[in-house]
Amino acid sequence: MKIQKSFGEQAGKGTLYLVGTPIGNLEDMTFRAIRTLKEVDLIAAEDTRQTRKLLTHFDIGTRLVSYHEHNKTASGAELLRLLETGLHVALVSDAGLPAVSDPGADLVREAIDRDIPVVPVPGANAALSALIISGLPTDRFTFAGFPPRERKELKDWLEAWIGSACGTLLVYESPHRLKKTLQAMLDVWGDRPIAMVRELTKRYEEAVRGTVSDCLEWIELHPPMGEYCLVIDLAANGGIEGVAKEMWWDGLSLADHVARYEQETGDRKEAIKRTAADRGMSRRDVYNAVMKR
């Protein structure tokens, strides 16, 4: 067991400060963050070029060094050595909170093992910002970083959430993988409530709220741009049960599939929407295929 008194003396050791930085809007930088970055002996940054712009804007002249995924072993060892000699170090990421989905978590663990105080200086966070504007449940949520890139690993990852009690799931996704990930979600989880949020705190901040199929249809007309945070309600309608391998409509043509729903609902537009969701297609593609017959 290790007990830390964050603001007491620590036998001559320095303190590792985890400093939150803006995720887009520079006005989200806190007074405490600016003061801390000015007072520490060293700032360790994921991308020194990006961080230098921030430091210049706030007139911060503290020495800047690099700490990222590819040099974390050597750089981390040196930072820990300096901390043990009594120097104070601030760790920052490109945007948001350090040690969340970045190598800062490794440095934190090592510092704790050496009884070096680790102190958070809170700031903006994309996942939580997306969650609170999503309109989806916030009483229970899980942050899962980036989904796997490869198709097989992604499918296995999605299936692992089936039956879980994680509530609302928060994940990050890049624009060039967004469509593939949404389609896989639809195939494995069905058409669940989702908010697709991008460019948080920036000029083109946007939240698309609806279902997974709605979002797939949206990006067909509006090509993805910027980094996305996906907020998915996994608890809606009793939670995820998975999509049955043999669907009731497997033997139907696309037109017959639409006709079955139209007979049930009396609404052709709704029938096309449901058919698109079942088959993981966009409504436009279903409409075109049926109307051009």
Rank of each mutant, 00 (worst) to 15 (best):
M1Y: 11
I3M: 14
Q4D: 13
K5L: 14
S6R: 01
E9N: 12
Q10A: 15
K13F: 05
L16S: 10
Y17C: 10
L18T: 10
V19W: 02
N25S: 15
M29A: 08
I34T: 11
I34V: 15
R35P: 03
R35C: 06
L37D: 00
V40K: 04
T48S: 13
T51V: 09
K53I: 15
F58V: 10
R63C: 01
T73D: 15
A74G: 14
A74Y: 13
S75M: 13
A77D: 08
A77Y: 03
L80Q: 08
E84N: 14
H88N: 15
S93L: 07
A95H: 08
L97A: 14
D102M: 05
D102V: 05
P103I: 02
P103R: 01
L107S: 05
R109D: 11
A111L: 07
D113A: 15
V118A: 05
V121C: 12
G123I: 03
L131W: 04
R140Q: 06
F141D: 02
F143R: 01
A144Y: 09
F146V: 11
P148K: 08
E150A: 14
I162Q: 01
G163D: 06
T168N: 08
T168H: 03
L170T: 02
E173K: 03
S174Q: 04
P175D: 09
H176E: 01
T181W: 00
T181I: 03
Q183T: 08
Q183R: 12
Q183D: 02
A184R: 01
L186P: 01
D187F: 03
V188N: 11
W189K: 00
G190L: 03
G190D: 03
G190I: 01
R198E: 05
E199L: 04
Y204P: 00
E206F: 07
P223C: 07
P224G: 11
E227L: 05
C229E: 09
C229P: 07
I232E: 07
A235M: 10
G238N: 01
G242L: 02
V243Y: 02
D256N: 15
V258Y: 02
R260Y: 15
Q263L: 06
Q263T: 11
E264P: 00
T265A: 07
G266P: 00
R268I: 09
K269N: 02
A271R: 05
T275F: 05
A277Y: 02
M281A: 02
M281I: 05
R284S: 15
R284F: 14
R284G: 12
D285Y: 07
Y287N: 08
V290A: 02
